[in-house]
Simulated scan of single mutants.
Amino acid sequence: MNPIIKEIFEKEMRIAKELYLSKKWEEAFSHLEKAHILGQRNAIPHTINHWWMLKVGIRKKDGKEIRGQIIRLLVVGIGSLLGRAPIGNTGGSNVGIMTPLPISSDIAQIFIKANLPIR
């Protein structure tokens, strides 16, 4: 994983975990979505991210999110390994697994700084 991306991915995951422990599920999920965009090109961080999304879905008792994350956990590593992760996808079950999304300007700047494509 690119060191610039890794640093910010880990920061977002750390914040998400702190919010999770504080039972701030929506805020935690928001940081998990940002971390997802950053980490989806790498199988292990991508999988860890979806595990935490599943945990939030369970805490929220959100059946759609739980089912969506279980499906993603079954296929996520394969997509990352094959370079098939849809750029910009936030990882939640409210978005199709292979649906690319526009990248926010702050995340685009991170990719540019890391010398990675944003499309």
Score class of each variant (00 low, 15 high):
41 R>P: 14
38 L>F: 06
20 Y>A: 06
42 N>P: 07
77 G>L: 15
31 H>R: 15
33 E>N: 13
80 S>L: 13
47 T>M: 12
101 L>E: 12
105 S>P: 12
92 G>N: 02
50 H>E: 04
64 K>I: 05
29 F>E: 06
33 E>A: 02
58 I>H: 03
20 Y>I: 01
83 G>F: 05
42 N>L: 11
42 N>S: 13
72 R>V: 09
63 G>C: 14
83 G>T: 02
77 G>T: 02
100 P>T: 06
70 I>V: 11
22 S>C: 05
84 R>F: 11
27 E>K: 12
42 N>H: 03
22 S>T: 14
100 P>L: 02
53 M>W: 13
99 T>K: 06
49 N>F: 03
67 R>L: 09
62 D>P: 13
14 R>S: 15
44 I>M: 10
33 E>P: 12
57 G>Q: 04
21 L>R: 09
84 R>P: 07
60 K>W: 02
19 L>C: 06
77 G>P: 00
24 K>Q: 10
89 N>A: 00
45 P>D: 08
93 S>G: 04
42 N>W: 15
91 G>Y: 00
19 L>D: 00
75 V>I: 14
31 H>Y: 09
39 G>H: 13
25 W>C: 00
50 H>I: 05
42 N>Y: 13
78 I>H: 08
79 G>T: 08
104 S>Q: 03
85 A>R: 05
31 H>L: 15
93 S>I: 02
56 V>K: 07
96 G>T: 15
51 W>L: 11
91 G>V: 07
47 T>C: 03
14 R>Y: 12
90 T>P: 01
74 L>S: 15
22 S>W: 10
46 H>T: 12
73 L>A: 13
94 N>P: 00
93 S>F: 03
101 L>R: 10
103 I>G: 06
54 L>E: 10
14 R>I: 05
42 N>I: 13
56 V>A: 11
39 G>A: 11
16 A>H: 00
45 P>Y: 06
76 V>G: 04
68 G>C: 07
97 I>N: 11
47 T>R: 15
70 I>T: 15
98 M>W: 06
81 L>F: 09
77 G>Q: 10
17 K>D: 14
64 K>D: 07
70 I>D: 03
86 P>M: 01
40 Q>N: 08
13 M>V: 10
59 R>F: 01
35 A>L: 09
84 R>V: 00
32 L>G: 07
43 A>M: 08
96 G>S: 08
65 E>F: 01
32 L>T: 03
30 S>A: 07
95 V>C: 07
32 L>H: 08
62 D>I: 07
92 G>L: 03
34 K>F: 10
35 A>D: 14
